[in-house]
Design a protein around this nucleic acid. Structure first.
Lengths: 219, 219
DNA sequence: CGGAGGGTTGATTCCCCTCAAAATCAGTGG
DNA sequence: CCACTGATTTTGAGGGGAATCAACCCTCCG
């Protein structure tokens, strides 16, 4: 485990071993840079998340990087050990496999957001999603959460500019729906926000795994 | 195995068993509908692809559907058997695990495209990607391929409108870069197209898996 | 106090959407 | 073979959402 300060790279295509990482504390994010400097953030990593569950952390294209968005505790995991656990029939293996599926679900929703939702809806969706994920690990309540990311980072996740994100946040604030000040998200009118986001609160719940949930592991 | 004609659903949230499917022949695509009818195509499935490798074919949000884009041969697979193979140490298991990783890579590139690339670049990238995937299974050569999708389907994959896709195709045709007529893509100036797309031909190659291969291929 | 990173706001531009209508193509049946 | 139909492609005109460019203002911090 290492202690990494905010805004530091923790995995780059060049220096990276490509091994999986566990985020013990703090926020990180994955991104890839395009030739002209544009950046697409492909995902946020919250405490408890494992990066590089399948494949390299450097990403399949070998151009993905991971950096911290806040002070973080990061644990380097062993690929072989992780793979063994993933293939095992243990509770931990089950948890990790579920996490992999959830991650894919999040990425897919992310894709849908960017592709077909209006900017305001995308923003609302992202902030609700992060809140739901944090709630699941006890780091948020229903009213809000600490959110140590810059507006520019949000913009790069949503395929927007920081300027536009700023205007959208102001609009949401003016409409008494949400505030985002000094790294803290506060839901003012959550039903309205959910409506704006077209957010499905259950999309992280994994219905099919829930079915298998009763003690017996699938064989 | 079933024979399905074009433009038919093969998996919907309602009727679907959620089990994995193998595309034996033809093209299919996954999509989810938003409340107002907008559609986001999240991926194309080509011959040899397995849909729902991990998780349900209905998608984590339970609102994803799969439909055919051409006449198809579709095989319903057994989830338990598939899981067993995936966890096994067989060649088939290896192939399927690799396919899962490649699928994630494709989705991520898709996300990057929609988020940060211009419309023309997105279109070029998609058509190159499909070509590369088809080449890998011997269904395309370097000059072009049969592409049985409507411009509207492409638009829904790229987060654009069919009208705009049409204009982009015309522009690419006028620039002598690419033609797309009557379901056939023909590369006229592939280097130019790759440049427009900012396409990385190696992004489907899986560098970390390549390491395990006898003759080392550089990434 | 001064510098830096991030936030806020305004003016202007343009890429892509919306709406609308032809034109072309693919079937189908007479 | 040709009329008829629906789906897809093509083209046009106009509008709007987000980008771009460019300030200025915070707040933190050494």
């Amino acid at each position: 485990c290492r202690y990494v300060t905010t805004k530091q790279p923790i995995a780059t295509p060049d220096t990276d071993s490509g091994g999986p990482l566990l985020i013990g504390n703090g926020w990180a994010y994955s991104y890839t840079l395009l030739a002209d400097g544009r950046r697409q953030v492909t995902g946020f990593h919250l405490p408890g998340d494992v990066i590089g569950l399948s494949g390299s952390t450097a990403g399949s294209d070998g151009r993905r990087s991971v950096a911290t968005a806040s002070d973080c505790v990061v644990c380097d995991l062993d690929r072989a050990v992780l793979d063994h656990i993933l293939h095992s029939n243990t509770v931990l293996g089950e948890v990790l496999r579920r996490q992999a599926t959830v991650e894919a679900a999040i990425t897919e929703q992310h894709l849908i957001s960017i592709g077909r939702r209006k900017a305001e809806s995308r923003l609302a969706h992202l902030l609700l999603e992060l809140g739901a994920r944090l709630e699941a690990v006890g780091l948020a309540d229903a009213d809000g959460y600490r959110c140590p990311v810059t507006q520019e980072l949000i913009a790069d996740a949503l395929g927007l500019t920081n300027v536009h994100v700023n205007r959208l946040l102001r609009r949401l604030r003016d409409q008494r729906v949400l505030t985002f000040v000094r790294g803290f998200v506060a839901f003012v009118d959550k039903p309205k926000l959910i409506e704006i986001a077209e957010f499905d609160p259950g999309f992280l719940a994994l219905p099919d795994l829930a079915e298998h949930r009763p003690h017996g592991m699938t064989g």
